[in-house]
Amino acid sequence: MKLDPIVLENAQVRLEPLRESRKKAVREALNVDPEAWDILVSSAYGEDFEDWWTDAMRSVHLGHRLPYVVIDKAAKAIAGVTGFFDIVDAHRRVEIGGTFYRPEFRGGLVNPACKRLLMGAAFEAGAIRVEFCTDALNGRSRAALARLGAVEEAVLRRHKVTHTGRVRDTVIFAVTEDDWPTVKALLDARLG
């Protein structure tokens, strides 16, 4: 499995690999909704942005992560960020995460459009499993993952410490290569 840092695009969104030339625009786009950042493991809000950016760039160079800037094509604006995490080529497994959307882009087609592109790229690259990890307290994320057709598999108790110091339980969802044709058809119909 080899995930390349290429632009991914469909009718709704354009996903561009995170690049230094986009840093200022990404900072401005993510500097919203501080309460939404509180439930996430890391924060890119305010003064946290530099550490978030540095960690993202370091992870890219190590081959562990491939973050994307999400551009809503209708609005011609940065809607947020998402990407591949925990890339494990040997096991043909990858996590999709690091997702944050500006409030005005939540609940519409941006998330399913992004997930369709990312899962499609992962399975085309040879993945046999795509995972999603979310905070057990994040009802919005859990509902969105279920609507995508991902299967809730487990709760990892006291799994991660968030940037606020809270110890979170993590809920694991997944789509396997066997699930993908059905999930793909569901997403294509939803986005159609």
Rank of each mutant, 00 (worst) to 15 (best):
K2I: 13
A11P: 03
L15F: 01
E16T: 15
P17A: 06
L18K: 12
L18S: 05
E20R: 14
V26T: 07
R27P: 08
E28V: 14
A29N: 05
A29G: 05
N31K: 01
V32L: 04
V32S: 01
P34W: 07
E35D: 13
A36D: 03
A36C: 06
W37H: 02
I39F: 09
S42A: 13
E47D: 10
E47M: 14
T54R: 15
A56S: 10
V60W: 10
V60D: 03
G63F: 02
Y68S: 00
Y68K: 06
V69I: 12
K73A: 02
K73M: 09
K73S: 05
A74K: 15
A75C: 02
K76Y: 12
I87S: 00
V94P: 02
V94S: 07
E95H: 02
E95N: 10
E95A: 12
G98H: 02
G98N: 07
F100T: 06
E104S: 07
F105M: 11
R106T: 04
G108L: 06
G108T: 00
L109K: 13
V110Y: 00
P112M: 01
A113G: 07
A113N: 09
K115I: 08
R116V: 07
R116T: 13
A121F: 09
A127M: 11
A127W: 04
A127S: 11
I128C: 13
F132C: 01
F132Q: 01
C133Q: 14
L137Q: 14
L137E: 06
R140Q: 08
L145Y: 02
E152V: 10
E153Q: 11
V155E: 08
R158C: 00
R158Y: 07
K160D: 06
T162W: 13
H163V: 07
G165W: 00
R166Y: 06
R166F: 10
V171H: 04
I172L: 12
F173Q: 01
A174S: 15
E177D: 15
D179F: 09
D179Q: 07
T182C: 11
K184N: 09
D188N: 09
R190C: 04
R190G: 05
G192Y: 12
G192I: 10
